[in-house]
Amino acid sequence: MPTESAPAIRVRDLEKVFRVFRRRVGLGGAIRDLVHRRYEPLRAVAGVSFEVGEGEMVGLIGPNGAGKSTTLKMLTGILVPSGGEIESAGFVPHRQRVDYVRHIGAVFGQRTQLWWDLAVIESFHLLGKIYGVDEKTLAERIEQLDGILAIGELLHTPVRKLSLGQRMRCDLAASLLHMPRVLFLDEPTIGLDIVAKDGIRSFLRDINREFNTTAIITTHDLRDIEELCERILIIDHGSLLFDGPLDAIKSAHAAETHLVLDLLSPPTGAIDAIGGEGVHWEQQGPLRYRATFDRRAIRPPDLARAALAELDVADLAIPEPSIERIIGRIYRESGARRGGTDG
């Protein structure tokens, strides 16, 4: 498939196999382990291929242990692939690590890139030196980043005293000081409150628009994907299940919307009638009921109104769908589609 410009990232048949040490059970087992260790191969990434165009923002999603982080770590040069090829920003990450990492930025949400005991500004200056950004340019960039991330008042605070949201903003700023061409974000909004999440998402959109930065984002939060990415890659059991536009996830999202109701007293009539055709009711507890419906056919407020009129409702919620659920759905749909065109 011809793309308009050369891809920023090209991955072919990427593989990572770990040797996993299998412990035996009990004390006797522990002693036998000392003498002879049993290892089993674990294919964390099993032949993944994709391309990401310059300036594209792609969401990489999948359940825990699917191989997302391992893929990201190979893309950033942290892990050496067991097989396949990676080319990113014109480099082979694990072979040209020192030159390559000058052109990328990485934020691993769980872990800070900054020095724990240093004030944020000192960390920034140190990173400026490491990446060869001169003082004047660095000061300009910090000011620019302060404009969008509002980190000005945090600059003189030691990193260890920052809240998670503050730290994440500083980490994002740190990853952009050297104006990377490609950005890798692993769970950039994990553990943040709604306001902080919104701030980070709009910041990432700005960066992408202004500097045409390419980005790969892994996340468990579907909102991140919906607001940032036009394309998603779904990975499970180390393989790429789906590579396509966000619309697919939106329709999967919509097709299985839930409305959860907690009642004050048991329903008097037949609950199945509420909402009419296309609403499937399930009892989940003595006084808890859940409706499943397609929000493209039935508007959630209409269903809620109908339910409130008929039932003695204590509480209602429209929970976010889980990533596992959506993956399952996309898997079934893409499998069906593929079957339809090929066969």
């Binding site: 950033t76 942290i78 990328i104």
Partner: peptide, 13 residues
Amino acid sequence: EGRFDRLLLRPMP
């Protein structure tokens, strides 16, 4: 604890 990741992300030995 996996802190070595961070060293690998910086352009220095």
